[in-house]
Design a protein around this nucleic acid. Structure first.
Length: 568
DNA sequence: AAAGTAACTTAGGAACTGAAGT
DNA sequence: ACTTCAGTTCCTAAGTTACTTT
């Protein structure tokens, strides 16, 4: 495969840390301005209709749009919302409205529901018109020129204002995420490019020309005070090369992982506490694919942890459990407040060390009190150039996929069965990395539907078999060409139906096993795509069965590069 | 060495879309 | 033509890491 969209992946690598020479783009697309509600849609305070000023009304609509969500009933959400809402009110509104519980947003809420219903009911022509308009905006703002390539931009739309909803038990849920204006925006582009124009009558906060970074646009968000960026799409050269580099680092780890494992096992015996802690933490990161675990500012975010920030309360030690010795039980909330629960037997030395680390501590104390991510990563850097905690996740994920594919793929199986094997290998990785999802709301139903199809297919199969049988009997008696041919046709039909049935059954298995597991994250971020490309080539599985269009674009470099002999 | 800043990757769920089923 | 559902895309929060400042 080669064409104008292909990259020569090794072209122009800058050695001075610069990321590009030329960068030209049109700037961001702003959120549409607020449209006041029609006057017939009323807000009620204490049972009486009340006309709100535009700024107060806008914030009220944010709340109204979320009314069906459980979190609008949560104290923290309501408290944060109410506080920020009041800041947008005029002084009379402030004095009139003194209790959120007396606010009635239901008319607003119903209005928005009706609106979205109306949007669904739009005529074909209107839908087409919308689609064309979106396409036009995409063509105008969705691409940029970076060096000699036209590249797709990832997120060229500025995040619209609304109420912040963090994940898990977030102390800031319900706060107002304010509208971003041109005056908040920093533009990054090259000096010699045509600079993006701010909307009529406005100006950018700043235009800079920093080619040491990859972003095109940035602004500071008001909830956490962090910076948000507009960057390129994963299909871009700059992202692709970085991704490739990531997997090359993981492959370098493969070469020295035995040495490193030997080293941390030795360190379990160190006379220095900090070294023992470092070594046990690294063992967890390696064996369980835990995240590094930076410390977080209390009260600013949900209370989640990773390896280095584990607390006493997150593990339990069992000298003996279910016939196994030295079992550690983990139970904590990780990234995105996803629960990590695992019971694993560990080596005696690890167990003894953990007991030591727990001595004289309260449940809310740090398990590894002499360790943090910075110390750990500094140590890792000394063990291998470019090594950090997250490289272990990448390495263990990719090596697991490769091993599992080898183990699970049977040469004689057909393509659907091979794909099931692939998904099972993928699943092993997702389980390792604890990539969970909420069971889809329609899960039970969709399983049922599939079962119905399977039953129907089974009926169809027995019918076809019966027909085949009678055709055979017929052929035995008549012995002419016509009946012989009929037998062949029926045979084919049976075969085809068997295959279809098998495909459905495989699909059901796959879906059932996937109920609470998300494969996408590992596929997109942890698995060296060359492993999958090589596997597809080896077993003649079309790459389209494994990667959809977007994924093929993201992994173009790997599809280009890997042959069937590729080994991670 | 602790805290703060910046840039970038990783993450799950919501919204959207288009194809299959009725 | 209309609905339903699965797959895809969008959205943006939440991490990691390197670097700078105090």
């Amino acid at each position: 495969m080669s064409g104008p969209l292909d990259y020569q992946w090794e072209e122009e690598r800058y050695t001075d840390g610069s990321k590009w020479r030329f960068l030209e783009h049109k700037g961001p697309v702003f959120a549409p301005p607020y449209e006041p509600l029609p006057s017939k849609v009323k807000f009620y305070y204490d049972g009486k209709p009340m006309k709100l000023s535009a700024p107060a009304e806008e914030v009220a609509t944010f709340f109204a749009k979320m009314l069906d969500h459980e979190y609008t009933t949560k104290d923290i959400f309501r408290k944060n919302f109410y506080k920020d809402w009041r800041r947008e009110m005029m002084s009379e509104e402030k004095s009139k409205i003194s209790d959120l519980n007396k606010c009635d947003f239901t008319e607003m809420s119903d209005y928005f529901k009706a609106q979205s219903e109306a949007r669904k009911q739009m005529s074909k022509e209107e839908k087409l018109k919308n689609k064309e308009e979106n396409e036009r905006v995409l063509q105008e703002y969705g691409f940029c020129m970076m060096d000699n390539h036209k590249e797709r931009i990832g997120n060229f739309r500025i995040e619209p204002p609304g109420l912040f909803r963090g994940r898990g038990d977030h102390p800031k849920m319900g706060m107002l995420k304010r509208r971003i204006r041109p005056e908040d925006i920093i533009i990054n582009c090259s000096k010699d490019s045509k600079h993006p124009k701010p909307p009529q009558g406005t100006r950018w906060k700043e235009v800079r020309h920093d080619n040491k970074v990859t972003w095109l646009v940035s602004w500071t968000e008001n909830i956490q005070g962090s910076i948000k960026y507009i960057m390129l799409n994963p299909s871009s050269r700059i992202k692709g090369e970085k991704d490739w580099q990531k997997y090359e680092t993981a492959r370098r780890l493969k070469k020295c992982v035995d040495r490193i494992r030997g080293q941390y096992r030795d360190d379990w015996k160190s006379k220095e506490m900090r070294i023992r802690q470092r070594a046990v933490a690294l063992y967890f990161i390696d064996k369980l694919a835990l995240r590094a675990g930076n410390e977080k500012e209390e009260g600013e975010t949900a209370d989640t942890v990773g390896c280095c920030s584990l607390r006493v309360e997150h593990i339990k030690l069992y000298p003996e459990m279910d016939g196994q010795e030295f079992v550690v039980e983990f139970d904590f909330l990780g990234k995105d407040s996803i629960r990590y629960y695992n019971k694993i037997p560990v080596e005696k030395r690890v167990f003894k060390n953990l007991q030591l680390f727990l001595e004289n501590k309260q449940s809310e104390d740090d398990l590894f009190d002499r360790l943090n991510t910075s110390i750990l990563n500094k140590h890792l850097q000394e063990l291998m150039d470019g090594l950090t905690a997250k490289v272990f996740r990448t390495y263990n994920a990719s090596i697991t996929l490769q091993q599992q594919l080898k183990e699970l793929t049977s040469p004689e199986e057909n393509i659907p069965a091979k794909i099931l094997s692939y998904n099972r290998a993928n699943r092993a990785v997702a389980i390792l990395c604890n990539h969970q999802r909420a069971p889809p709301k329609t899960f039970e139903k969709s399983m049922q539907n599939l079962q119905t199809k399977i039953d129907a297919k089974k009926d169809q199969l027995s019918d076809a078999r019966r027909e085949l049988k009678s055709a055979k009997a017929d052929a035995k008696v008549r012995k002419d060409e016509k009946t012989k041919k009929a037998v062949e046709t029926k045979k084919k039909a049976v075969q085809r139906i068997e295959e279809q049935l098998m495909k459905l059954e495989v699909q059901a298995t796959d879906r059932e096993e996937n109920k609470q597991i998300a494969l996408g994250t590992s596929k997109l971020n942890y698995l060296d795509p060359r492993i999958s490309v090589a596997w597809c080539k080896k077993w003649d599985v079309p790459i389209e069965k494994i990667y959809n269009k977007t994924q093929r674009e993201k992994f173009a470099w790997a599809i280009d590069m890997a042959d069937e002999d590729f080994a991670f």
